[in-house]
């Protein structure tokens, strides 16, 4: 994206006006392992949500907390702190 911009596209002082536009960036491709949630075990305590450094876990309509793999970097914190062991990390398959 940056390499498509010319000097004319930059704001005065290189100010960025679109707040939070980094959310367009995919960080899921950093991952070597991904979290799998076992909904049978999940008690919806939201610990995984609050402890995700990447804000990659989102509350779902049904009240679960699910990883958004577009952002999830696969650190495994969610799996390690889940009191019900409802999350397991599995190897990312080759694309």
């Amino acid at each position: 994206m940056a390499d498509e911009l010319t000097w004319k596209d930059l704001e005065v002082g290189n100010i960025i006006k679109e707040a939070g536009n980094a959310s367009f960036r995919e960080t899921g491709d950093w991952r070597t392992e991904k979290p799998i949630l076992d909904k049978e075990k999940c008690v919806k305590c939201a610990l995984c949500w609050i402890y995700c450094p990447d804000a990659a876990i989102k509350p779902s309509e049904e009240g679960y907390y699910e990883s958004d793999l577009y952002y999830c970097k696969g650190c495994g914190i969610c799996a390690s702190i889940c009191p019900e062991r409802a999350i397991t990390m599995i190897a990312e398959e080759e694309k």
């Binding site: 959310s23 990447d54 970097k73 696969g74």
Partner: peptide
């Protein structure tokens, strides 16, 4: 916002 480039598992990002 999501999409930041902190290292995987970063305590500072959290």
């Amino acid at each position: 916002a999501e999409g930041h480039s902190f290292c995987i598992g970063c305590g500072e990002a959290l």
